[in-house]
Nucleic acid binder design. Structure first.
Lengths: 254, 254
DNA sequence: CGCCAGCTTGAGAGGGCTCAACCCGTGTGG
DNA sequence: CCACACGGGTTGAGCCCTCTCAAGCTGGCG
């Protein structure tokens, strides 16, 4: 059941069998949540950490004018807000995109496992820091890239993140987001998202239909949007190139 | 010297004299850094945590086309990347805006103080989580607000953050950012930033000159851009209203 | 006194938005 | 088996927010 979690943690840090055993023992109560439902709502007092076992969810806020902004996608294995219970109240909501299997892990369970399993602790830390790095890259996306690169970048990111948890086969993965979801993620109108996706399709970069996306030419798509995977801090995957930013290193060489 | 830090932590969590003593004992080597200089650079391997004692700095990335995106402002007392040394390499740079007094606190010092001072640990946690919350709000800013509200929102945020560290007098604070800095922060052109600031000035909301900003009507500015301070998770300040989002609490049901 | 970074303003262009219609697949009910 | 509704995708047309290019201005400093 928590293949996804173990797999994710191991993409950051090698674990022992003992570590894995402790993680498996974690499963307390799996919540089945239907699509388009809140896991936790802005203003609630958090005392648990959320772990998505299966399905997609997102963090979002709704502004006074009804505008929704999505700030993160949560995919299987995402295990975040490592210490949200320190804060007094949620400043955003988490809602499902698809039906999800989720676990609410109480604070005590976290403290217990981290006390005895330093590798797990380290891997969880890694997760939390990567989450923040992803947030920063999304900010770059919204602030510095035009619509077509923005969406291409998102598709690249999801490819790598989902591959790290074994949810990609031959460059295809589940893509249950509506165009309005993408619009609210990218700070675009849904009309423009539609036109932009068409553009990516016409360029032969991606195929997107029936809630599934296929990256037709990964290298070209990455080059197209200037995708640099360093912010995902992945290890043990085919993408884990540890080079620094090409144009910052010596003489455009490397 | 580290008034700023103690003050900041205490805006989140009450400390004992003993805690304060431990914090004061932290001062190892204060770095004097001139303006417009990198504290740490993308690609470097981090093994210390940065604390700004005085001056302003920022996190940023530079894209292949030379476009700079600023992702955070660091003001006196900002003490962040609590555990960046877990990651292998920096995925962004930190550079000063003004001359700064900064401290690089080695990993060991962090681990030592947090081992014995749970209140401090908790306050540091709080800091890290607030940092992430600010990042999320910036994403909302870029994704969902027009230029004028965006900049107004930034000015509101800085007012509250700086006030929490005692750097605001009669709604004025130091504002050493160039219009290009703001442009690279807000995903706008510097020309448009200029026009937008003029607009805010003409509306009588702010006065901005000689590297100092004065908020002429705080309540009106907050209303203007729909500012909700909940994401800063401040305590012990005149802004710490703990209510949830007004338009979510009543009316639209629960 | 002259340079230079940063600020200001004008004019024209374009990326993305809004409004609005239409299409399509699916589910529901008669 | 067909009628209809409905969410989501697609397309067109016109507009406007913001961008780019370009010039002129201002103030601090060597």
């Amino acid at each position: 059941m928590q293949d996804a979690l173990t797999r994710k943690l191991e993409s950051f840090e090698e674990l022992t069998n003992e570590d894995r055993g402790a993680l498996n023992a974690l499963t307390l109560k799996v919540r089945q949540v239907r699509a388009r439902t809140d896991l936790i709502h802005e203003g609630d007092a958090p005392d648990t950490v959320h772990l998505i076992l299966d399905g997609y969810a997102c963090r979002y806020k709704v502004l006074a004018d009804g505008q929704r902004q999505i700030m993160a996608y949560l995919v299987p294995g995402d295990f975040c807000d490592l210490n949200v219970f320190i804060l007094d109240q949620m400043d955003h909501s988490i809602g499902t995109i698809t039906a999800c299997q989720a676990v609410d892990i109480p604070r005590q369970a976290i403290e217990a496992i981290t006390a005895d399993h330093p590798r797990v602790t380290r891997a969880l830390w890694w997760c939390a820091l990567v989450d923040e790095a992803v947030l920063r890259e999304w900010l770059v996306n919204l602030g510095s890239r035009p619509a077509n690169h923005r969406i291409a970048h998102l598709l690249c990111e999801l490819l790598l993140r989902l591959e790290a948890v074994g949810r990609v086969t031959s460059n295809s993965y589940d893509f249950p987001f509506t165009q309005s979801d993408i619009a609210d993620t990218m700070g675009l109108s849904n009309v423009h998202v539609n036109r932009t996706i068409r553009e990516l399709r016409e360029l032969g970069l991606v195929a997107l239909k029936h809630r599934t996306v296929t990256i037709l030419d990964v290298e070209r798509l990455k080059a197209y949007c200037g995708f640099n995977p360093n912010y995902l801090h992945l290890r043990n995957t085919r993408w884990s190139n540890r080079r620094s930013v090409p144009w910052l290193s010596s003489g455009h060489g490397g």
